[in-house]
Design a protein around this nucleic acid. Structure first.
Length: 945
RNA sequence: GCGGGGGUUGCCGAGCCAGGUCAAAGGCGGUGGACUCAAGAUCCACUCCCGUAGGGGUUCGAGAGUUCGAAUCUCUCCCCCCGCACCA
């Protein structure tokens, strides 16, 4: 069977006949499913494929359930990545160029053409256009049932108009604000930099650290020392200055600060008004004194070469009791008189410096000293100091308590009081803020990255109570699968705060009130599902962006105003305006959004929040379903690991239906799925077996006269069918698919044991259509193929599920066969254990009264069982009954509504075939006296060897 | 830090939410057999331990508890993983 050719054939037919382009049909219930649009910075791989595939399976199942399903798709290009790629290609960055050469190579064979395309990537729009085009191709090749009429990308003018509208609505709610905000920045480029602009930014993330810059009085100004542990200020003993560094005086908000030259440079980007003063060598400060801000103690300024002038302010205050670095540096200094004299310091003075302990913590006398001694740290260059610092920090943070030296903070746990100390220092003017990158970073061009503070950053303020309340309400009412994500979403909504929503660079939509800014990529992708409902009309009617006025969207999405006015205002015909409104009203809300859990705390939270802010309640999101990551052979799939399988190769390498089947069955939805070649090939074999079974039945005549084996199989099938429908409805795609395909195949095998292969073809033919329908969401191509081979003109992709034929469910015949098969198992086990070669097998059923008793007590509680049994009118002595009842309870014998003797006689031949020996039922021959151990539904067995 | 999720028989991984029918699905791997000149593919059987009668024993991170009964519920401990503000 040529799977590839079958896939292609049906994909083309679906496209030709516009099978997945649903129309508004008010008589039909709709279902609107979305999966977030992919980002266009490259091609997609099997990892992405899992999410889109699950989305498609759900969409197809909903169609099967009879819904009018809309599954649209678009492309995301907002932000800097595409820009950064174009920049890198233009700059001749080899790494990026070879990466994109590989990407393009997935689709093109001709070397010359590849280079040509690569060349065109110097323009970011071409990157977006190229990959959007390929993603469409890939998605079609995956059999996704997407309505492509509605596609767009996020840098298109019509979309920009929509996003502008969204922001105007948010502005009207009072949630768009401006304020200060720290960002990573390149002074050389004069630009903010994102992860994509930073060298190794993707593997070694750069975050922004907020230091507390504490002001120590010095001369006419302050030496400003930055720290991440402001609570230790109470234990300061001295300042550290790097004697090899250069320190400058700067004017900040009317104050004079002394910081390293490098820090002064950074502060220019962090403070509003900065004036540079003159610079001095670090040695100038050494030996002088400064005053600490809390108690105005005079503390000495000492030399320390471990101080990095390019980290924070280049001035460090020393807390030797609690900071291992400080402790060790001080100890080194106290030992090195010669060095001290070099700076004109009196060694005796330095030796007099005592540790000031300000934190009480169990297990430590003097924390920094204890750990340095314990770890046998020799000097301040010892690399173990970093680890020592970590250990002390963690211990003190969780179990340290500030002591009496800490004023109003005495007796408090560090973890609880840290921020309060910080705020106290800042609000009393003893300290300020200094931002620093978490590591030394440079841009891809090698330019230094620092932290700058934007003075007029645009924010969305999620912190407002009314808004969170609406968000919670929506979250409570939505469907979440898996359910656990509902609670998580509540937590996230509580945690949401102000969030910057615009950047200075990137593709996308310009900020409506400030064209210098671009709306950032997560903020422009929150309610665009609404745009899908009208995107195709905008295209069909050739409506230009200028016509997409605020009033039009107000009418279409919010029902404000009337169509006649809007038609006049925009020049769009009234019927078209009304059609847009109709289309929106029909499809909205978005019933299900399917994606990966990584989006919870950003995209999905904004998706909910923006909807509740802008739309009336009936248009709030209906649900969220999530699936876990896909990894490959135990490793994360990534370009750098070189283990990427592009979506474009699936059809050829594996077959699309097989891939989809793997996505459906290889792992539960919310767990990580491992793509393993060995598992894929084993799945292929099992899948092919099913295909073969179907193929053999397609041309068979349906069975007419059913025997009890047939009834057994039909019963199993329709039970599974019904279960599977329920499972699918509850997003249990894996269980449903396993049940419908592999568990049912086990039934078929069992059936073949009963009656052989020939009859199987005709019995399968009888259930074939129902079977194909149930499998079609997961393996749409092969089922479509067989559907048509069965003579249908309709598409299985648009068919409706049939009611399970429960009249075929026959508990009795299933119980009978269970009974027979467990008897065979028992006989086989005895043979196994005894190693007997059976000459004859004797089977003895229990006396009839026993069955009577079991029936009577089967539903009774163990307590009542005895009493009930005794009341049964049977001619057997009570002692024997009591003994038997105890056995029933102990062995948990369950009542079955079957006639054992009849069944045994009927299945005699089958049993004999299975065990390879003659059987004798209820013979008088009983040499070992086995007969008496028979109980109902578990006959006694004697094997003559 | 904040939030979430886990630890199951050689491995991966179900089951645990609704305790018993769980020695615990399925796959992979392994062993044996059929087929074959042979290998591969395929198919069948077995795969915790013991057992010459359908049975018994010991298991589900560690420990304690609830219960007639716990992989499943409660508590404590140990270990692992994931997401978190501009990054899409």
């Amino acid at each position: 069977m040529d799977f590839q050719q079958i896939e292609k054939k049906w994909q083309e037919r679906w496209k030709e006949d516009r099978v997945f382009e649903p129309k508004v049909d008010k008589d039909k219930e709709k279902f609107f499913i979305t999966v977030p649009y992919p980002y266009m910075s490259g091609s997609l791989h099997i990892g992405h494929g899992r999410t889109f595939t699950i989305g498609d399976i759900i969409a197809r199942f909903k169609r099967l359930e009879g819904y009018n399903v809309l599954f649209p798709m678009a492309f995301h290009v907002t932000g800097t990545p595409v820009l950064a790629i174009a920049d890198a290609i233009r700059a001749g960055d080899d790494k990026v160029i070879s990466l994109y050469r590989d990407y393009v190579g997935i689709y093109e064979d001709d070397e010359k053409k590849i280079e040509e395309i690569l060349h065109s990537f110097k323009n970011p729009e071409n990157i977006a256009r190229y990959f959007a085009d390929k993603v469409i191709r890939d998605f079609i090749s995956m059999g996704y049932s997407i309505d492509w009429r509605r596609k767009f990308h996020t840098a298109e003018p019509i979309y920009n108009k929509f996003v502008e509208w969204q922001f105007k609505k948010l502005y009207g709610k009072g949630v768009i604000k401006r304020g200060k905000y720290p960002i990573t920045y390149s002074p050389v480029d004069g630009n903010p930099v994102g992860e994509d602009d930073i060298e190794d930014g993707d593997v070694n993330k750069v975050t922004i650290m907020e230091f507390t810059a504490i002001k120590f009085e010095f001369g006419d100004g302050f030496l400003v020392a930055a720290t991440l542990r402001p609570e230790t200020i109470f234990g300061v003993t001295n300042l550290w200055i790097n004697p090899n560094g250069e320190y400058c005086k700067i004017h900040v908000n009317g104050e004079k600060w002394y910081v390293s030259k490098e820090a002064a440079e950074k502060l220019r980007y962090q403070k509003e008004k900065i004036e540079m003063g003159r610079c001095l060598s670090g040695t100038y400060f050494i030996g002088k004194f400064a005053k600490e801000p809390v108690n105005s103690r005079k503390i000495p300024i000492l030399p320390a070469e471990f101080v990095d002038v390019d980290n924070a302010t280049g001035v460090v205050y020393s807390v030797p009791a609690h900071a291992p670095y400080d402790y060790q540096a001080l100890a080194d200094l106290q030992k090195n008189e010669e060095y001290l004299r070099k700076f004109g310091l009196n060694p005796q003075d330095v030796k007099k410096i005592e540790l000031i302990k300000i934190i009480d913590i169990e297990g430590y006398e003097m924390p920094a000293r204890d750990i340095c001694e314990k770890m046998k740290i020799e000097n301040q260059k010892d690399p173990q100091l970093e680890e020592a610092t970590q250990i002390i920090y963690k211990d003190e943070f969780y179990s340290g308590i500030l002591n009496e030296k800490c004023g109003e903070f005495a007796g408090m746990k560090i973890g609880e009081i840290k921020d309060e100390v910080k705020n106290w220092l800042r609000t009393t003017g003893k300290a300020d803020v200094f931002y620093e990158t978490s590591r030394k970073a440079v841009t891809r061009n090698g330019h230094k990255v620092i932290v700058a503070v934007l003075q007029d950053q645009w924010f969305i303020d999620y912190s407002q109570e009314w808004w969170k309340e609406l968000g919670h309400r929506a979250t409570s009412r939505m469907i979440f699968y898996p359910e656990k994500y509902r609670d998580m979403m509540h937590d996230i909504i509580d945690w949401l705060d102000k969030r910057p929503c615009a950047r200075k660079r990137g593709l996308g939509t310009k900020f409506p009130w400030d064209r210098e800014w671009m709306i950032e990529s997560l903020s422009d992708s929150t309610i665009y599902m609404a745009f899908y409902t009208i995107a195709h009309i905008i295209r069909e009617e050739n409506i230009t962006a200028e016509r997409l006025k605020e009033e039009l969207f107000d009418y279409v999405f919010l029902g404000k105003g009337d169509s006649k006015d809007i038609s006049e205002k925009t020049g769009i015909p009234k019927e078209v305006v009304e059609r847009m409104r109709d289309e929106f009203l029909y499809w909205y809300p978005n019933d299900l959004r399917h994606t990966a859990p990584a989006h919870m705390s950003n995209h999905l939270a904004f998706f909910i929040m923006h909807h509740v802010a802008i739309f009336p309640e009936e248009h709030w999101p209906g649900g969220i379903s999530l699936n876990g990551l896909m990894i490959r052979e135990g490793a994360k799939i990534s370009k750098s690991k070189g283990n990427v399988i592009p979506l474009a190769h699936i059809s050829e390498r594996y077959g699309v239906d097989l891939f989809r089947l793997y996505c459906a069955t290889a792992a539960d939805l919310d767990t990580v799925m491992d793509w393993k070649e060995s598992e894929v090939s084993s799945l292929r074999k099992r899948f092919q077996r099913i295909v073969a079974i179907i193929e053999e039945s397609v041309n068979s005549r349906e069975i007419d006269k059913l025997n009890h084996y047939d009834r057994w199989l039909l019963s199993r099938f329709y039970k599974r069918y019904k279960e599977s429908v329920e499972l699918m409805k509850n997003f249990r795609i894996r269980d449903a698919t396993l049940n419908m395909m592999f568990h049912f195949v086990n039934d078929i095998k069992q059936y073949e044991k009963y009656v052989g292969k020939e009859r199987r073809r005709r019995i399968i033919r009888k259930i074939l259509e129902d079977w194909l329908l149930m499998m079609s969401p997961v393996v749409p191509h092969i089922t479509e193929e067989f559907w048509h081979r069965l003579g249908h003109d309709s598409y299985i992709s648009l068919e409706k599920l049939r009611e399970a034929k429960m009249e075929y469910v026959d508990e009795r015949v299933e119980m009978e066969m269970d009974y027979v098969d467990s008897l065979i198992e028992d006989i086989k086990e005895i043979l196994e254990v005894t190693k007997l070669k059976p000459k004859g097998v004797y089977i003895y059923t229990s006396p009839a009264w026993m069955k009577e008793v079991v029936k009577k007590i089967s539903d009774a509680s163990p307590k009542d069982a005895m009493r009930i049994a005794m009341s049964v009118d049977i001619p057997v002595n009570k002692g024997e009954i009591a003994k038997f009842v105890k056995r029933v309870l102990k062995e948990k014998i369950k009542y079955m509504n079957i006639e054992e003797l009849e069944v045994l006689k009927r299945e005699k031949e089958y049993i004999e075939k299975e065990i390879g020996a003659k059987i004798f039922i209820n013979s008088d021959y009983d040499p070992k006296g086995k007969k008496k151990i028979a109980v109902p539904f578990k006959p006694a067995i004697y094997i003559e060897g």
